[in-house]
Simulated assay, not measured.
Amino acid sequence: MSAELAFILLCLTSFITLINPLGVMPIFMTMMSDYDNQVIKATARKALLVSFVALLFFAITGQLLFKFFGISVNSFKIAGGVIFFFMGQDMLQARLVKTKVADTEVKKYVNDISITPLAIPMICGPGAITNSIVLMESAHNLLEKAILIISIAVICILTYYVLLNATRLTRLLGETGCNVLMRIMGLIVMVIAVEFFLGGLKPYLIDILSHQT
């Protein structure tokens, strides 16, 4: 297997796992269950566009940005873990199922949720951002850098089409099915949150303990 093909597989498999379109879908389904296809498309399109731009931005400037502000990837994991945990708690209690907004506020609502929480941190989360930074650092030439950018675009497009078909699953599952799926995914999100939090906290604990010995 050539180095380029191996890098393509690494980029695609890592991003599809970390972005997890099927994991985002239940939340998107419940948030947009009361809106027409035009609003759903606009929300999904903006969320994925913001996600792509954010991942591309961090891939190109991540290391420089973190050094400039004195931010570590571990700190980012801790913050992301806290956000994920409370999001998962809401999902576990099915609080996102009944999201109703007045017609005059639909545009504002779409703008709000398409950026947060859909784009950041659900689609473009700490894992995906960290992955984009690490893979860009691992790219040895312009071809591999281009492969990384194209891979991010491909996964974002795939996620977009998964979200567009979420309403069909909503009709298929019904309200009860959505509640059950939401609670299951909420539990999974909370587990992921704990992993992110502990993964970010572990280096700090090791550093503290090493200074005490």
Rank of each mutant, 00 (worst) to 15 (best):
I155K: 04
C156E: 01
A128S: 13
K145I: 00
Q63W: 00
Q212W: 15
V191R: 04
A166T: 10
V180R: 02
I157K: 05
D34T: 12
Y160M: 02
I155M: 05
G174Y: 09
V106C: 12
Y35G: 13
K100H: 07
F85V: 05
A6W: 12
V191Q: 07
L48S: 03
V24M: 04
L143P: 03
I149N: 12
G81V: 08
C124T: 15
A79H: 03
V134S: 14
G23L: 00
N20V: 01
I206K: 11
A139P: 02
T17R: 15
L143M: 10
H211S: 12
M91Y: 08
P26F: 00
I157T: 12
T104P: 13
F52I: 06
F58W: 03
G199T: 05
C156D: 06
L187Q: 11
V162T: 15
F86N: 08
S210R: 13
F197A: 06
F28W: 14
N20Y: 06
D207E: 08
M29R: 06
L135I: 01
V110W: 07
A166E: 11
T176Y: 04
L135N: 01
V82G: 07
R45F: 04
I8H: 04
R168N: 14
A146R: 04
G174A: 08
S210T: 11
A139T: 01
M122A: 02
L12R: 08
A193Y: 09
V82H: 13
H211N: 13
I157L: 07
Y161K: 13
L181C: 04
G200A: 06
I115N: 10
A54D: 12
I129A: 02
I120N: 09
G70K: 00
P26I: 00
N141T: 02
E144K: 03
T170I: 03
L92G: 12
T116P: 01
F197I: 07
I188A: 07
N20D: 11
T116N: 13
L198E: 01
